[in-house]
């Protein structure tokens, strides 16, 4: 961070200058934790996450850089792109993942989240899961070029979008298996919902669920148009 001559940071200065010494430190600590931490941060650890007032400041601080605070489960927090920023970035064609990586990620999500959720094994709208997707299975059944799946998995893992599943509790014969990564915790609720809707529309376009999603989308577009 570079400081201007009057000692204020050009981006964060306006927010930070309102805080006293202690609160400032706490907010900055929480900012670093949610931005750079791999996993969501428990609010018990950081006062700025626990306290609503400081959380508001933290949110404003994140907002200055196009990010927002995302609550994960009960009492864990991380940060992600704000919905409007994400929409603008994707509208401008910002897409860091190649198509093959996206395809593999979708397969992992289908195996680890969508299928267990449809079986009633998972609840909630989170995109993390404890149901591993075996890499062998991916290679065997996916209609993707085989040689590219494992490199794609490695890249996704580096990006935190998948993680390798722990060995505990699995049979000796199974190979490497993957779980959705901690980066998926950074999705905002509306992003999570959008992802879920997209998956439902893709997987079961004839289901009543898909019908109601389409109806909702049409209604929201309609109201958008009215506005």
């Amino acid at each position: 961070m570079t400081a201007t001559t009057d000692g204020q940071h050009p981006v964060f200065g306006p927010v930070l200058s309102e805080l006293n010494e202690r609160h400032r430190d706490e907010v900055l600590t929480a900012f670093a934790a949610v931005e750079h931490g791999r996993d969501p941060v428990p609010e018990a650890q950081l006062a700025a996450l626990r306290d609503a007032t400081l959380r508001r400041h933290l949110r404003r601080l994140l907002d200055r850089v196009g990010r927002t605070l995302v609550q994960v489960g009960n009492g864990h927090w991380t940060s992600g792109y704000a919905d409007d920023v994400a929409a603008r970035l994707s509208a401008e064609g910002w897409q860091p993942l190649p198509a093959i990586d996206r395809a593999v990620l979708v397969l992992v999500l289908v195996h680890s989240v969508a299928i267990p959720r449809s079986q009633g094994l998972l609840s909630g709208d989170s995109w993390t899961s404890a149901h591993p997707t075996s890499a062998d299975e991916l290679v065997r059944y996916a209609q993707l070029p085989r040689g590219e799946i494992r490199p794609a998995l490695q890249r996704l893992r580096a990006a935190g979008l998948v993680q390798s599943a722990p060995w505990r509790g699995r049979g000796p014969d199974t190979g490497t298996a993957y779980l959705p990564g901690p980066a998926l915790n950074r999705l905002t609720p509306s992003a999570r919902q959008r992802l879920e809707h997209q998956l439902i529309l893709a997987a079961a376009p004839e289901s009543p669920l898909a019908a109601s999603i389409r109806a909702k989308q049409a209604a929201s577009e309609h109201t958008d148009g009215d506005r």
């Binding site: 306290d51 609503a52 400081l54």
Partner: peptide, 28 residues
Amino acid sequence: QRIFDAIATLTGLDRELDHEQVLRSAEH
């Protein structure tokens, strides 16, 4: 505002204020 912060720290009011903030967190 800063001067108040300084005085509050010296007089122990900051803890009262923190408590108030905690209550507001609950309210929130």
